[in-house]
């Protein structure tokens, strides 16, 4: 597996004594983890076919093909599970996977590099890009809107931003 991989979950030990495993899912819809087919380890050497049997506290109980005993299930503890980026379904316009946005170079409309996208967050209002770079003292949260981010070029690995006034500068007014 040489293509980009995305971490979608992890094994968290055994469940019961019949070879079932505890499965933690990091997906937006937790149960979607079993729909992505083969799940790989970080180095891509091992692959697993996972079938969810039921929901349990903090995750799922699952059967893994080839795992029959509790000892085998215990040995998988803390194994992170990855899928190929190509497995994820394509999205409509103006919708992006967080994993695609993270790492993109951020340029302003004049072509000056501001930094890179560190994470994507949503606190209930709109999606926010966390941007960090050498020119910034600390990371900045930036609204992911059409007005503020006119261009997203995944192929070139960059986004162009039209920052509203005051977003990349320190607060000059401190009245409360």
């Amino acid at each position: 597996m040489t293509e980009p991989r995305i971490c979608v979950g992890a094994f968290a030990g055994s469940y019961g004594v019949r070879g079932e495993v505890r499965l933690k899912s990091y997906c937006a819809d937790p149960a979607a983890i079993e729909t992505y087919g083969l799940l790989y380890t970080e180095d891509g050497e091992k692959s697993f076919i996972v079938g969810i049997t039921r929901a349990i506290k903090n995750g799922f109980a699952a059967r893994v093909e080839g795992i029959q005993t509790k000892e085998q299930a215990d040995a998988l503890n803390n194994t992170q599970l990855f899928v190929s980026r190509d497995v994820l379904p394509s999205l409509p316009d103006d919708e992006y996977y967080h994993s695609d946005l993270i790492g993109l170079t951020v340029l302003d409309t004049g072509g000056t590099e501001i930094g890179t996208v560190q994470s994507v967050q949503n606190h209930g209002a709109s999606d926010l890009l966390e941007i960090a770079g050498p020119s910034l003292k600390a990371s900045v949260l930036y609204p992911f809107t059409v007005a503020a981010v006119p261009t997203v070029d995944l192929a070139a690995g960059r986004i162009i931003v039209d920052p509203p006034e005051g977003i990349f500068s320190e607060p000059s007014d401190t009245e409360v």
């Binding site: 990091y26 937006a28 103006d94 992006y96 967080h98 967050q121 997203v152």
Partner: peptide
């Protein structure tokens, strides 16, 4: 307080 979590297959929409 911010919890980052994993990106996994989460989506962001540009509105």
């Amino acid at each position: 307080r911010t919890y980052y979590g994993h990106a996994a297959d989460k989506k962001a929409k540009r509105k």
